[in-house]
Design a protein around this nucleic acid. Structure first.
Lengths: 260, 260
DNA sequence: CGCAGTCTTGAGACAGATCAACTCACGTGG
DNA sequence: CCACGTGAGTTGATCTGTCTCAAGACTGCG
């Protein structure tokens, strides 16, 4: 209610209105959401822990993030608290997904492994209690439906990725990743495209289920084939997205099974 | 409107009311959904194709199903129709998830690979147009929220599975799978538990990103360690779910990295 | 009973992990 | 402004888990 807003806070709320509450039946809905949401400036490397009180929804107004998860298997294991600390100490933490400006990320309390959002660069986020957000949203058909559509979209993206990770070679995974990033970061799906990857090779490997060395080798091979060029650590230029997408789908030479 | 219902159709609608429209503000919502939904008896092995007209929502009133997907990579590739037939002919079809009684499955039109639902045993399903279902559901806060909660649940399950598939050994994946199935089919998460797996070894392997032979070997190893026993093709008895879950999380002997 | 498809078991090959050096980008401080 | 150091990225050698190919054994159906 106070008027002591950062300019970035005001901007963030604007983005929230235009993205989430677009088409809201009543302008009041947007106002209530803005009031509920807690603005946060998350510096590069900063982490947003899961709220111990309940599921969270995080709206990304600006920046990019990785969703981390600890692979504590299903079971409701409260056998000993050491199981929890294990999550911290060991290398059970993996990148589940990347999220960018304008997306809503669900950070569940703890459904089989706990989740957290880590900033890849300075970010403006708006944090909500999932329950209270939905209490407001459910009264406005356009808004709740928007949220549902987004979560189904995330589900399908996750399923598609799962399909890729489960059954594709390192080459295919990396090619897929680059094509997907071009589409999400530049909205390019054909021709050439230059992008600045906000995540490290390690993050890429982690999200694809590969080691950092393997990712590096795949980049080298793609470079040798003239499909990409790289400048510095983050700039990657895709020379021909179509051809790259070809690499992603076809099983290439790999034993070239006689598929007629 | 006609009264010529199969008894299973009537039963299915009952299940729909009790599961999806539970707590609906107006009983009218349930009635409208029942009227919209198209009942189908899907015999074992039968497939429900994606509706060419739009996304589908399928409610499973009885039985078990696998969600299949073709890994046509992201890109809006309409380069040649042979890309589509490739989906049919080659082994690009993989099991994305299993679904059981009482669940709602989203079968999207075609967002980067097409999806279809295949019956693992005789099933009673109720098929909806996603848009028309949501048109009705969005007017009833309790119902739309129920649907949203379910889709977020599916998203988290998918993410957890992705984490597993991306970073775990064959042993861990199979153990995880068995633990998860015990929880979903028998609601058992500790002690012993006997379950009849409705899916084949091939389906299991496919969903875990493993070959049928590897799955078989893992079953043999678990059997040798006294963690499971099997009877016939589908009956599996988990002797100690807790210990099995242990196998699932710990990286075991595998180079046993010095984790203090 | 016998067939067909599913599952199991074995031997060999390969993609990717692991371990270990080395190089390079980039920010810091002299 | 350039030497310096740290951490990210690259490259190479080796090892191993899983895939592949190929028989063989069992289940469950007609």
């Amino acid at each position: 209610m106070a008027t002591a807003f950062h300019s970035s806070e005001v901007t963030s709320m604007e983005v929230l209105r235009s993205v989430v509450a677009r088409g809201a039946a009543s302008p009041d809905t947007a106002a209530r959401l803005c009031e509920l949401g807690e603005y946060r400036l998350l510096p590069r490397g900063g982490e947003l822990q899961a709220d111990p009180k309940g599921d969270r929804l995080v709206f990304i107004a600006e920046g990019a993030a990785k969703l981390l998860g600890c692979s504590v298997p299903a079971q409701t294991s409260r056998r000993d608290s050491s199981a929890l600390s294990a999550c911290e100490s060991r290398k059970n933490i993996h990148v589940l997904a990347f999220h960018f400006r304008g997306e809503i990320v669900s950070v569940p309390l703890k459904s089989g492994g706990d989740f957290r959002l880590a900033a890849l660069c300075d970010m403006d986020v708006i944090v909500f209690s999932a329950n209270r957000f939905l209490d407001i949203a459910q009264d406005d058909p356009a808004v709740i439906r928007n949220v549902l559509a987004r979560s189904l979209e995330a589900l399908h993206r996750s399923r598609t990725r799962m399909m890729q990770i489960g059954h594709q070679s390192a080459r295919q995974r990396v090619a897929c990743f680059l094509v997907a990033m071009a589409e999400r970061l530049c909205c390019c799906s054909v021709g050439a495209c230059e992008l600045a990857l906000p995540m490290s090779r390690g993050d890429i490997g982690d999200s694809l289920g590969l080691t950092i060395e393997t990712v590096s080798r795949q980049f080298a091979d793609l470079r040798a084939e003239g499909l990409i060029t790289t400048h510095g650590r983050s700039i990657v230029r895709l020379m021909d997205i179509g051809r790259l997408a070809g690499k992603a789908s076809r099983s290439e030479k790999l034993h070239s099974r006689r598929e007629t």
